[in-house]
């Protein structure tokens, strides 16, 4: 395999596995937040704001993988 083919394959692997973890994590976070809102509807505002910020933090991991994949595809240092 050439470097280009390996790069494409590794980009796909990076995004797929990088989306797996944050997906599971975000699911758990949303489930916990919904549970908390169901128990205490009066604090829904605070919970949802914290949830949004937390989701953004978790999502960043997936975005990192996406950026790594893009670097591998478009700015690969080993491809001339």
């Amino acid at each position: 395999m050439t470097v280009e083919e390996i790069s494409i394959l590794s980009a796909a692997i990076a995004v797929s596995f990088g989306a797996l973890g944050p997906g599971l994590g975000e699911g758990r976070a949303v489930a916990a937040a919904l549970d908390a809102i169901a128990r205490q509807p009066e604090s829904a505002g605070t919970i949802s704001r914290t949830l949004f910020v937390g989701l953004a933090m978790i999502e960043t991991m997936a975005i990192y993988c996406l950026v790594v994949a893009l670097l591998v595809l478009f700015a690969n240092p080993f491809v001339k």
């Binding site: 953004a56 960043t60 975005i63 990192y64 996406l66």
Partner: peptide, 13 residues
Amino acid sequence: FSLIIRLFGNVMS
């Protein structure tokens, strides 16, 4: 850095 990458990655994607 993560502030940069988060906004860039989301909008760019």
